Amino acid sequence: MDPTPLTIRYFAGARAAAGRAEEVTPAGRSLDDLTVELVQRHGDQLAAVLRVASFLVDGVTCHDRETPLPGGATIDVLPPFAGG
């Protein structure tokens, strides 16, 4: 397993809920495990965003939330966007 940490990047409402644009965290766990940790770290406001967010792992939509994330990956947290 690659020990290189994950980079989490927050966009729009996720950024506001987390109170930051980016952070790093250890690798080796799944997206489901990571979201539990992020909610514990940042609280209910981020939990609400994560329930409806999309996640990109190194620019690719993540459909398998149970596979361990590779070390060094960048995880983008994308809440639904409004616009016209």
Rank of each mutant, 00 (worst) to 15 (best):
D2F: 02
D2E: 11
D2C: 01
P3L: 05
T4S: 12
P5T: 09
P5D: 09
L6E: 02
L6W: 03
T7M: 10
T7K: 13
I8D: 07
R9N: 07
R9H: 09
R9M: 08
R9P: 03
Y10F: 15
Y10K: 10
Y10N: 08
F11T: 12
A12Y: 09
A12Q: 10
A12V: 09
G13H: 11
G13S: 14
G13Y: 02
G13T: 08
G13D: 14
A14F: 07
A14E: 04
A14N: 06
R15S: 07
A17N: 10
A17W: 10
A17V: 06
A17E: 06
A18Y: 06
G19H: 08
G19M: 06
G19W: 10
R20P: 01
R20N: 02
A21M: 02
E22R: 15
E22F: 03
E23N: 05
E23W: 04
E23Y: 06
E23Q: 15
E23R: 13
V24L: 00
V24H: 11
V24P: 00
T25D: 07
T25N: 02
P26E: 12
P26G: 11
P26Q: 07
A27R: 02
G28W: 01
G28H: 04
S30I: 10
L31N: 10
L34R: 03
T35N: 14
V36G: 01
V36N: 00
V36R: 13
L38H: 00
L38Q: 00
L38G: 00
V39W: 05
V39I: 13
V39T: 13
Q40L: 09
Q40M: 04
H42R: 15
H42N: 05
G43V: 10
D44G: 12
D44Q: 15
L46R: 08
L46F: 06
A48V: 11
A48G: 13
A48F: 03
V49C: 01
V49Y: 04
V49K: 02
L50P: 02
L50F: 02
R51E: 15
V52Y: 03
V52S: 09
A53W: 12
A53R: 10
S54P: 00
S54F: 05
F55I: 04
F55P: 02
V57F: 02
V57P: 01
D58C: 05
G59P: 09
G59F: 06
G59A: 03
V60K: 14
V60N: 08
T61C: 06
C62M: 09
H63Q: 14
H63G: 13
D64T: 05
D64G: 02
D64R: 12
R65T: 14
R65I: 06
R65Q: 12
E66M: 11
E66P: 00
T67D: 07
T67W: 02
P68I: 00
P68V: 04
L69G: 10
P70D: 05
I75S: 14
D76F: 11
D76C: 10
V77D: 09
V77Y: 12
L78C: 11
P79S: 01
P80R: 01
A82V: 13
A82N: 11
G83K: 05
G84E: 04
G84K: 04
G84W: 05
